[in-house]
Design a binder for these strands. Structure first.
Length: 330
DNA sequence: AACTCCGGCAACCGCTGTTCG
DNA sequence: GCGAACAGCGGTTGCCGGAGT
């Protein structure tokens, strides 16, 4: 559109505003209204460009500006809206009375971005980060989100995530062993050079995870049908849904899994987050079906192995995933 | 005490959309 | 229909103060 920037005019002051300038601007606008921003500086006796005046007024001097720390509700609103709207700061600001788009943008880019990164999210896409280790805290955090929403502080949450990430690292290591080519060719009682007993011991060390209801099969990398015990199925990270676009991705049905291998499938639970911004589980195609269970038929291990049953996995957008996980039956 | 580093935030820059002559 | 003026928006910059060494 070929318009020269208004601030190109020489001699106009830039940089931080002084209290005197603020006072002039406020006085003038309270008396006359801002009218044309371009004309305002001269009329108000300011050596600034109109644009600078407008920004100063809208972002700082407006009487209805709310200063100070963002409340937890405001944080959640920003996160929710940003996951839906993206960087539409003005649109987000319209839902937060007294907050400016600039303030929200700054807050998000400093505080919330850091928190998302700590939790293993990509702060731009709200998707889990794709590198394996970065994904661990995200995956854990997803299932812990309910607690987070229930007044657990970020700090407490971070401490807990760290502990659980250590558990996940061990699980990933086990998965790595199970997936190695050697395991495919190996005898049924030996996996990647480790024995069933060793694998069981490793799994046993992870069993405390069930108490936190953190672990689920999607935290494993790829399907490993019948490679071990009751079978471990996993959802590749690339299929994880985005918060930005509530997904309708498909998971293998319990029937498919029962046919292909030996899974115990439980599918009972509640939605993790009934966010008003997102489709409810009951209205989605992933609504929780009645609890079902398929038989465990792996002839090699069904009677001797610890059995890990499925449990539901919920994403924050309310999507229900019917998926087997490690729920140990004593 | 002096220096460096880093995070937070106000302000600026440049682009886009709208209005108007 | 065209172009200039204007307002708004999102990205970026740079200053400042606090923390760390």
């Amino acid at each position: 559109m070929g318009r020269s920037p208004c601030c190109d005019e020489s001699g106009l002051k830039k940089g931080p505003w002084t209290p005197e300038e603020d006072q002039k601007l406020v006085k003038y606008i309270q008396k006359q209204g801002h009218g044309s921003w371009r004309a305002l500086p001269k009329l108000a006796g300011l050596n600034r460009c109109g644009k600078s005046c407008r920004l100063r007024w809208t972002n700082y001097l407006r009487p209805d500006i709310k200063r100070g720390k963002f409340s937890r509700e405001e944080e959640e609103t920003i996160l929710n809206l940003h996951s839906i709207l993206g960087n539409k700061w003005s649109a987000i600001a319209s839902h937060l009375p007294g907050r400016t788009d600039n303030e929200i943008k700054n807050f998000r880019n400093t505080h919330l971005k850091k928190k998302l990164i700590q939790m293993g999210f990509d702060p731009m896409t709200h998707r889990p980060r794709t590198d394996m280790f970065a994904s661990l805290p995200h995956l854990i955090a997803l299932v812990n989100l309910k607690e987070l929403m229930e007044h657990q502080s970020w700090e407490e949450h971070a401490v807990r995530l760290q502990a659980e990430a250590a558990q996940m690292a061990r699980l990933q290591y086990l998965q790595y062993l199970l997936q190695s080519p050697a395991s495919v060719a190996s005898a049924s009682n030996s996996i990647s050079g480790i024995t069933d007993m060793e694998a069981f011991n490793l799994l046993s060390s992870l069993s405390s995870i069930k108490d936190t209801q953190v672990l689920n099969s999607s935290q494993l990398e790829t399907p490993t049908p019948s490679s071990f015990g009751a079978g471990l199925y996993s959802m590749p990270f690339s299929r994880l849904p985005s918060l930005e676009t509530p997904s309708t991705f498909e998971t293998p049905s319990s029937k498919d899994m029962a046919q292909s291998s030996n899974f115990t499938v439980f599918s009972q639970g509640e939605t993790l987050l009934n966010s008003p911004w997102l489709p409810s589980a009951s209205s989605s195609s992933h609504a929780a079906p009645p609890a079902t269970e398929t038989s465990i038929t792996n002839p090699a291990d069904a009677s001797s192995s610890p059995i890990y049953e499925g449990a539901p996995l919920f994403w924050p957008d309310g999507v229900f995933i019917e998926d087997p996980i490690f729920r140990e039956i004593a």
